[in-house]
């Protein structure tokens, strides 16, 4: 049976500690990330409680998050267009772990929101959308699937707490009928 040989010396965590020549190293690199032209304006919009997209003059899609180019037509986008911020939940999950896989005290609900924006056909494969927390929905809403297709809108932080960040939107919450 192939493979006939599988070289490799397995080492358990406790045995690793006994080996000579083990190196530990903590890297920290600091960055100042440029948000670039389109996202800088987008972040300023968030601070004002507005969700901004950019219009492609060719296919007429309003791209959210905005970019300076339309990747479908590969040309510059032109006008800024404010979208209402409402939309439907495309998919949602419940996270019990944080970034480094630590258990969270309180699970979080995260989703992708298909935003109401001009230029897209109903149910199209590509859409304007954001990735954010969901609030006002339960774990059971996620597991049962009730949350998918639910109409939502952003819950904004109070203006004085906004920093020009994705977190100026606290979460997306159901639109009460």
């Amino acid at each position: 049976m192939k493979p006939e040989r599988t070289p490799g010396r397995y080492i358990r965590e406790e045995d690793l500690r006994r080996l000579p020549g083990v190196i530990e190293y903590k890297p920290v690199a600091r960055y100042s990330y440029s948000a670039g032209q389109a996202l800088s304006e987008f972040l300023r919009g968030l601070k004002e409680g507005r969700i901004l997209g950019k219009l492609c003059p060719s296919c007429r899609r309003v791209l959210v998050p905005p970019r300076v180019y339309c990747e479908f037509c590969f040309i510059h986008t032109t006008e800024w267009v404010e979208v209402p911020g409402t939309g439907v939940v495309e998919t949602a999950v419940v996270s019990y772990i944080g970034t480094a896989r630590e258990r969270l005290e309180k699970p979080e609900i995260i989703g992708v929101i298909r935003l109401d924006a001009p230029g897209y056909r109903e149910g199209s494969f590509d859409f304007a959308g954001l990735f954010h927390r969901l609030c006002g929905v339960t774990e059971d809403d996620v597991k049962s699937g009730r949350v998918i297709g639910m109409r939502v809108r952003p819950r904004w932080r109070p203006p004085e707490e906004r920093r020009g960040s994705m977190l100026d939107i606290e979460c997306f919450e159901p639109v009460q009928p």
Binding site: T91, S95, M166, L167
Partner: peptide, 24 residues
């Protein structure tokens, strides 16, 4: 770093989102 990292994501989030959508 602008759109996603502020949410404190774990990589499994996106796969879970995809799996949930597929299941639906």
């Amino acid at each position: 770093p602008i759109l996603e990292r502020p949410l404190g994501p774990n990589l499994i989030w996106i796969f879970a989102l995809e799996m949930r959508r597929y299941m639906h």
